[in-house]
């Protein structure tokens, strides 16, 4: 196996881990029927708070906890505004997107380019010796990368293999039915929005404590929150597809930057920056129902069924709606 390719893939796995974590967090939240639109702001704020806490305490663990708390807190505002104050989730989420980013910039001001603690790099014994998989997935990653692996399986297992997972999905699909089975719909929405928010915060910490260490203005992770949101849709609210989406996205990004390096391709440098966004629209187009159906009609009938099953991306039926018991 080509060593350069392994290097590139290994870097890819590292650098896409925050996207994986944030998109999983949002998947959990949306599965419970709540949209946390604030990702682009809350990741940034969590990164700032996490870094400041890590610098202040000298401990990356405290930084991580602070970042998770921050993400959860932003999510809490959304869920309180939704359930208790009956305000539109999208509106509150959007305001928080801007507010959290500004707040991050303000509190981060005196920490710009300050050196702080960083997460260590760890290799996993035994696993790192597996050919191909070892060097790519189990060598020299920060611990949060491994956390992201565990999270993917844990989220899937929790959602699709446990009893509480049934309740989680039911709350997002049909809250009336969940209520009929004794599930406290709004309490679960609180819990999972907070859990999802905490993961979004964790993604922020992964940036500021390892992937893009430190704090800068403008924040280096700006824009990734929107991409994470798009990945959730592309991933059809399923953990495996979500992680696939995140890796795919990071991979295409890497390819687009490689294009610039190729001497044969004459594309103005700045236009390469358009690619992630074109990619985002493209992926959403692919999973949007209208486009799929048009695409499918071109296929033979037998192929239509399974292609639809793979590409279909139905949101939780009660996503963004409010539930009142009576």
């Amino acid at each position: 196996m080509n060593e350069e390719l392994l290097n590139i893939l290994q870097t890819l796995v590292t650098s896409s881990s925050p996207l994986v974590i944030a998109a999983l967090g949002e998947t959990i939240t949306e599965r419970a029927g709540v949209v946390n639109l604030s990702l682009d702001g809350s990741i940034t704020l969590a990164a700032a708070v996490g870094f400041i806490a890590a610098v202040g305490s000298g401990s990356t663990l405290i930084g991580i906890l602070a970042a998770m708390l921050t993400g959860a807190l932003v999510a809490l505002i959304i869920v309180v505004a939704d359930i208790e104050l009956k305000q539109d989730q999208v509106a509150i989420g959007f305001v928080l997107t801007l507010l959290a980013a500004s707040l991050a910039q303000f509190i981060g001001q005196s920490y710009t380019r300050v050196r702080g603690p960083e997460l260590p790099f760890v290799s996993l014994t035994f696993l790192k010796d597996i050919p191909f998989l070892g060097p790519v997935f189990f060598t020299d990653h920060n611990p949060l990368v491994y956390v992201s692996f565990i999270l993917v399986f844990a989220t899937w297992w929790w959602m699709f293999r446990t009893r509480p997972g049934l309740a989680l999905r039911a709350v997002g699909e049909r809250p009336e039915s969940a209520f009929a089975r004794g599930t406290n719909v709004n309490r679960l929405r609180y819990i999972y929005t907070l859990v999802g928010g905490a993961l979004v915060g964790l993604a922020g910490a992964a940036y500021s404590l390892s992937i893009k260490p430190g704090w800068t203005n403008p924040p280096a992770m700006r824009g990734d929150g929107w991409i994470a949101l798009a990945i959730v849709i592309f991933g059809g609210w399923h953990p495996f597809r979500v992680v696939l989406g995140a890796y795919l996205f990071a991979g295409l990004r890497a390819i687009s930057s490689a294009i610039q390096r190729s001497p044969d391709v004459q594309i103005p440098l700045v236009l390469i920056n358009a690619l992630p966004w074109l990619l985002m629209i493209g992926t959403l187009l692919l999973v949007s129902s209208g486009a799929i159906e048009r695409l499918l009609r071109a296929l033979p009938r037998s192929a239509q069924v399974w292609t639809r099953n793979i590409l279909r991306s139905d949101p939780p039926a009660a996503l963004g709606t409010r539930f009142e018991e009576h």
Partner: peptide, 17 residues
Amino acid sequence: PGVTLDPTAEVNTFFDN
């Protein structure tokens, strides 16, 4: 972000290559 290439990623790419 969104305007320039990401320097962190570019430096990693240098080393990877």
